[in-house]
Amino acid sequence: MNGCSWEKLLVVRFGSLGDIIHTLPAVATIKYNFPKLHIAWVIEPRWRPILEENPFIDEILEFDRGDWRRAWSTIRLLRHRRFDAAIDFQGLIKSALVARLSGADHVMGFHRSQLRERWAALLYSEQVGATALHVVDRNLQFAAAIGASQPLVVFPIGPGVPEGELPAGQFILAAPFSGWRAKEWPLERYEELGELVRRRLDCPLVLNASWEWRDKVPRLRDCWWHFSSVNGLIHATRRATAVVGTDSGPLHLAAALGKPGVAIFGPTDPRRNGPYTDRMIVLRSPSARTTYKRLRSYHPSMLEIGVQEVFDALLRALASVNSAGGASE
């Protein structure tokens, strides 16, 4: 496999937010090493704002799984593009199928032993084994396997747009919801954290959630709910003084934007899925045991992380950034 002989490359990574962000450096590396290579990224419509204005991507194609007519139209468009190669960074049967249906000469993905859905490997013409632990580094190894030997670790993120109401001044941002309940920290603890943030830092704790949560969330004392799409989340994160989060897309977005803060981890391994930055403090109970089962209740290890522990870590993260010359925008 050698990308220098290709003219067109298709990247398949539909979602979700954190996984897309963790793929950005690999794609930037490929473009950096092969600047004449036309790179198209097929993605779910809701995540498109992440890729907008990315200088390492030539084309963004939307794949709407909820509308089979639009999805099939995208498949026809992919076949018309005549890609030399397609890389499935997602590792699912649905993403591998789109890569295969694109008609690309080379359809590549990670080795079947490293896939969430191993049957996806049957649709690949080539497989790449990765030895790195963190997902970002694994994706970079994939880029190296096709000849992109000079890594470029950057996270180009779209600008976002203002949505919903935000405080006029400084605020701490948190996103309490994630892909599944086991990775979350109880909502009532954000209420306690909000009281500490207001009293000790003299600013509000803003809780971001998608619009679908607007009529479902409880009122929390000392917390400011902010509802938005991904565009609004990007804007809010850029404005935030610091971020508190769990293993979820908003946390990885904050890390990519260079924000300081606290990452609360439990069942998932921060060595593999943690924030890819040195500006965040990771908290994880010593008793935590790694599992990626999508359980519908809080993982016990998440309950072992106390509010005061999170607030103290937030103070350390802010102090570290202040001593280094300020937070990133």
Results as ranks from 00 to 15, higher is better:
Gly129Asn: 10
Leu315Thr: 06
Ser149Asp: 12
Val27Asn: 14
Gly164Cys: 05
Gly18Pro: 07
Ile75Thr: 08
Leu201Asn: 06
Ala242Met: 03
Trp213Gln: 10
Leu207Tyr: 14
Ser178Glu: 01
Arg271Phe: 01
Gly325Phe: 10
Arg199Asn: 14
Ala121Gly: 05
Ala209Gly: 14
Leu77Met: 10
Asp278Glu: 13
Gly3Tyr: 11
Val154Met: 05
Arg70Asp: 04
Asn139Trp: 14
Gly18Ser: 09
Ser328Asp: 11
Pro250Ile: 07
Gly160His: 08
Ala145Arg: 10
Tyr298Leu: 02
Ala85Arg: 08
Gln114Met: 08
Phe89Ser: 05
Ile50Gln: 04
Thr23Tyr: 14
Arg13Met: 04
Leu152Pro: 06
Phe311Ser: 08
Tyr292Met: 02
Phe177Trp: 09
Leu17Tyr: 06
Trp211Ile: 15
Ala168Phe: 13
Leu205Cys: 08
Ala143Gly: 05
Pro35Phe: 11
Leu37Ser: 09
Asn54Trp: 03
Asp312Ile: 03
Glu329Ile: 11
Ala174Thr: 04
Tyr276Ile: 04
Thr74Arg: 07
Pro167Glu: 06
Glu165Ser: 14
Ala144Ile: 03
Leu233Lys: 10
Leu315Asp: 02
Gly274Ser: 06
Pro275Val: 06
Arg271Met: 00
Gly129Cys: 13
Pro250Tyr: 07
Arg296Ala: 10
Leu51Thr: 12
Asn33Glu: 07
Asp84Lys: 08
Ala132Ile: 10
Gln150Tyr: 08
Arg272Asp: 00
His299Pro: 00
Asn139Ala: 12
Ala104Pro: 07
Arg284Ala: 00
Glu309Leu: 03
Ser328Tyr: 13
Trp119Val: 12
Pro176Gln: 07
Lys31Ser: 07
Val197Ala: 02
Leu196His: 11
Ala256Trp: 03
Asp19Cys: 13
Pro204Leu: 12
Glu44Cys: 12
Pro218Trp: 13
Tyr124Lys: 15
Asp84Tyr: 02
Ala96His: 08
Glu184Val: 04
